[in-house]
Every structure is written in C-alpha cells, then in structure tokens.
Design a protein around this nucleic acid. Structure first.
Lengths: 147, 147
DNA sequence: TGAATTCCCATGAGATACCATGAAAGTCTG
DNA sequence: CAGACTTTCATGGTATCTCATGGGAATTCA
C-alpha cells in the first residue's frame, strides 16, 4: 500500500487553509478518499492525520500499546477530538482553530510522512524534535553497539 | 540480484538535475523501477539511495500506536525525509534543495555503489572519507598482525 | 442580515516532460 | 587493420504543465 513519506512545508493562510502536499493527496486518492482525518496528538505538540479508514477500528489498534483500560480511555480521547476534514477543489483543508492552537501553528505547517499516518508540526518545533530524535538514536546505537 | 557498485561522478546542473549512472539505471530497470528512493544519511554528509522496495519495511518498523516513545525513531526520521524521485526520459533525477544542502553538494555528485544501496557524496568529501577508511583499515591490520 | 464557511477562479513559480548537442565507446566494413 | 558509421550517455536548453496560494463570489448557518 502506498505510504505517507517525506516532509513538506506549506503555508497556512488567514482562513486557516493549508494545501495537503500533492504526494499525500495521491496516497489518499489511491484509497478513494477525498478527506483527511485529523486529531491533536495525545503527547506531542502536533496533529496526527491519515485517511479516515485508519480510525475505524481505533479501539482495537490502540489497546496494543496501553493497558486495556488506558487503551479505552486513549481511544476515547482521540475519538473526541477527531475531525474529518474534506479537501476542497484545490486539495486544501481548513484547520479548526483549536487544532492550530494545539500544534502551535502560525503561518506554516510541516507535513511529515510516517507511513500509515502523517503529522503536522510547526516547522521550528519539528526541527527541534528531529535534533532530539537523532541524538537519541545515536546514543542508543552507541550503547547497543550497532553500526 | 544485480547490485550497485562502482563510483561515478556526474554533474549537478543549475536546476539540481543529475544523471543516474547508466549501470545504476540498469539495476533499477532490472527490478522494474523507474524511480529512485533517496534520503539524507542520518550520520554522514551524504544521501542514501536505492530502489523504493528497499524502504518498504520501514513502514512496519514505525509503531502504529499512538505513543511517541514506542516506535523506532531511526525509521521515523528516515521516513520523514524519504523522497521518491522519478527518472526523467533521459535517466536524470532532480535533487530537492534540502538534499543538496544536507550533502554539501555543489556542481558535482559522486555516486558510490554499495550493493543493495548507493550513496551520493560531494566528491571531495568522498575522497577524504576514503582516505580515512583506508587508514583505519591499515591501522587495524597492524594491530591484528595481518599481512 | 451578518458572519463564517465553502466554492471557484486567477496567477506565478516551480516542477516535469521534451528536444537538441556533443562526446565517447563500440561496431561494422572495406 | 583502419576508417567510417552507429549507439549510448551525459548534459544543456526550452516548452508545458502541475501545484501552491491568494482573492473574491456564492452559500450556509445562526
């Protein structure tokens, strides 16, 4: 299946509109979707997005990484904030104000492909995150002695 | 299976276009691919490339959960920077500006075959790397007493 | 009716496809 | 064996098209 990958920075205009990067649109289109499902990440300052199909059996997927009760509650939290945003004729969505606030977005949004899903970050925050991740990877390679 | 090997230096033009060396194209073609998958190396000043098939299991390595810590962060970083670059009719790709910057490329790019994958280096940086590698090999032979 | 939202169109920049040139390697032929 | 021709490649330029983005009209909802 086609996946979301790569990073693309697009502008958020005064109306809260952003273009979904063309490669991401292609992934959605390949699945016959004309909308994006979005929700604020539970633990990170960003938005998680995918085709709506990803969230259809949310409870089952999420219970893998939490205890059963915590899993249910996590699913409830996500479901409560999940929005299905239709693409307009030009491939844009309108970000709800709460989402813009939660992800600290101003005038730019970085779309980061992560396989089955993608994330939307404020570009500077993304740069910091990448730096931190890289350091963790480097450190774990050192301790685990991998090349 | 055919492998990438040998080093080829090609020109990067003003638009960021480079010819993929013909032998590398042959490898791709043998697999039925008309594009190259590229990403900046995590720890080296170069680009890593291969057929897209090489990156397909990256998706599986990325945690499908909704926790930020559970996943393979190296896979997340690579997925976030991976690009699929189609070959034009003449066997060229156009390098995104960020890639050119990350690998310090100016007007030349050295393609280095490494079996399943290949790398793209700024030629001078590659020369320095080769020198350093050779010295390490020589040093280890001395300490291990091999001829 | 006023505000917000959705739809539609215009525009320019950037990306992609297409064509041309020229050098180098290889092949055929006399 | 030598010379001429052919083919493959790398590379440069140009035309065409896609995409991101801005503005405004139309529509909906309160």
């Amino acid at each position: 299946m086609k996946a979301f990958f790569g990073t693309f920075i697009n502008k958020v205009d005064a109306k809260g509109r952003v273009s979904i990067p063309a490669p991401f649109r292609a992934v959605l289109q390949a699945r016959g979707l004309a909308s994006v499902a979005l929700h604020p990440s539970l633990f990170e300052t960003c938005l998680d997005g995918a085709g709506f199909d990803r969230f259809e059996d949310l409870e089952r997927q999420i219970s893998d990484s939490f205890t059963p009760t915590a899993g249910n509650e996590a699913a409830e939290l996500i479901m409560g904030e999940l929005r299905e945003l239709p693409l307009d004729g030009d491939g844009r969505i309108v970000l709800p104000d709460e989402f813009i606030a939660k992800a600290n977005l101003t005038d730019q949004a970085a779309f980061v492909g992560q396989g089955r899903k993608f994330q939307i970050w404020e570009p500077t925050a993304l740069a910091n995150l990448k730096k931190a991740k890289l350091q963790r990877v480097a450190a774990s390679m050192k301790t685990e002695g991998q090349p």
